[in-house]
């Protein structure tokens, strides 16, 4: 299926509606993410930020409207194409979602072992490369439960990157981390983007994250993008709703 979307729009939400039972979480949401761009999505808890990300990777389908990823309509995409598309995406889960019964190296190797024909030697090489990239060397043999929260998130990030995805989706990559570790993750996201030119959507409450990685920030409320702008403009906006949100955030930080 071809999209009417402009050439460099990689992810497009068009009037997306999604309800869980009675509750309309997304309500006619429009948003474009361009190739190579990092869009940060902010908003109060429970406004549907994770729901938004889940649409991009085909875990949820919109009730109305369309989600287009590289021209594929995610509501009608066939399993085989969805598979191919997912191979080009990485999803960083809020709590890392590593398999508890596998050590770090096996967790990273799993997607390669399961979905590719790469040799064990090549897999090992890539695992080490990604562990270096996220600055967690030498923890191959450790199990997720033996890692600190920050390390778990980094390993989760490494796993999302193991297939060298073009699109990376981050769900609250710094939530629950102390400021120092949070900043190191922010820098990691930026470094990655600069190094490989990945397109990214980052859901976060963390103003530091938004400032560090965003090309553009979208503020979500009542199931729509209430306001979007580049970081400078976003943080100096006098939109009353935004001021209230950021003020509240500021007092917490």
């Amino acid at each position: 299926m071809t999209a009417p979307a402009g050439e460099d729009v990689l992810i497009r939400f068009e009037g997306v509606v999604k309800a869980f039972g009675e509750k309309r979480v997304l309500n006619g949401l429009d948003l474009d993410v361009h190739r190579g761009e990092t869009v940060v999505v902010m908003g109060p808890s429970g406004t549907g930020k994770s729901t938004l990300l889940r649409h991009v990777i085909g875990l949820l389908r919109p009730d109305a409207g369309r989600v287009l990823v590289d021209g594929n309509d995610m509501a009608t995409i066939r399993p085989r194409e969805l598979r191919a598309l997912r191979e080009r995406m990485g999803y960083v889960f809020q709590d890392a979602a590593l398999l508890a019964w596998m050590n770090v190296a096996d967790n990273l190797a799993l997607p390669l072992r399961e979905t590719t024909d790469l040799s064990e030697r090549e897999i090992e090489r890539r695992v080490q490369e990604k562990l270096m990239l996220v600055h967690v060397p030498g923890s191959d043999e450790r199990f997720p439960s033996e890692l600190s929260g920050g390390m778990r998130k980094r390993v989760g990030l490494a796993r999302a990157l193991i297939t060298d995805p073009e699109i990376v989706l981050y769900d609250e990559p710094t939530a629950g981390l102390d400021p120092e570790i949070a900043m190191s993750i922010n820098l990691l996201m930026r470094e990655l983007r600069e190094r490989t030119g990945t397109t990214a959507m980052v859901v976060t409450h963390d103003i530091g994250t938004a400032r560090t990685v965003a090309d553009r920030i979208a503020f979500l409320e009542a199931g729509r993008v209430h306001f979007q702008a580049p970081p400078d403009e976003f943080f100096t906006s006098d939109d009353p709703r935004l001021v209230r949100f950021l003020g509240h955030q500021g007092s917490r930080a």
Partner: peptide, 25 residues
């Protein structure tokens, strides 16, 4: 309990987005 924990910790979702067959694994 083991699979249930994996389900609520999004580990099963992670398998799905990585196109890993959870029935097989």
């Amino acid at each position: 309990a083991e699979l249930g924990t994996m389900a609520v910790n999004e580990e099963l979702t992670a398998l799905e987005v990585m196109s890993i067959d959870k029935v097989n694994l």
